[in-house]
Nucleic acid binder design. Sequence first.
DNA 1: GATGTATATAACATTTTAGTTATAGAACTT
DNA 2: AAGTTCTATAACTAAAATGTTATATACATC
Lengths: 123, 123
Amino acid sequence: MLSTQLDATFSALADPTRRAILARLALGEASVMELAAPFAMSQPAISKHLKVLEKAGLVSRGRDAQRRPVKALAEPLAEATKWMETYRETLEMNFSRLDDLLEELKAEDAAKTARKTPKGETQ
Amino acid sequence: MLSTQLDATFSALADPTRRAILARLALGEASVMELAAPFAMSQPAISKHLKVLEKAGLVSRGRDAQRRPVKALAEPLAEATKWMETYRETLEMNFSRLDDLLEELKAEDAAKTARKTPKGETQ
DNA sequence: GATGTATATAACATTTTAGTTATAGAACTT
DNA sequence: AAGTTCTATAACTAAAATGTTATATACATC
């Protein structure tokens, strides 16, 4: 669980162009030109984005004559998803502990109030 | 579902120092000094990381005398998690369709072979 | 073999990011 | 009120990211 892998995955996902590319690739392989078409951006720019995605392991490249078809890979997402899930679980645990604490404090306070308030009286 | 929110979330998570800060905060509120302690990094550097996290909505700041306690917030994660889940689901759907296609091709091929092979013969 | 098409790379400019030190301000302590 | 503690900001530097244009390369086709 190298930190650098997570860095690469989250960095790759942090760019809207790259997320759009991945969204497109989720529907199936595509060539660089096909991927570049929807964007107001040069082909070399897209090639660079693809290099980022490839370094992060989010895509792999094939070979079909002059084309280098790009294919999405699912694996690297697992680690990133896991990090986020673990984080959220810890957060939630902490919140529920906080809730418990608040409950405790409330109960304690009620007890004190009860002690201060003579038997049978209400407040 | 502004793209810029996702950008901010993923960018924030792309840095190991910020992930460590969040991991620490998942256990409960902390002051800037407490957060800075484990890192070989100046206090202003940590303050900058906190500003990034705050802009992404991943933390909120409180006030306790000179301290500005930092608290983790869960909400922004939802969108990011959703993006990743949707992406993975689409990917998997596509893979299973590919599997179907391969099955089809195999069946087709088997049928052809059968036609080429006279009745009763095996190959 | 000349031409076209798909992609990668080089060289460059601009912006953003991540860190530094120095300093300022606000609130506590004595 | 003087000093200490906590945090933020300013000014700066260095490196990385994102885009550009021009060019090279590899294959396909005429």
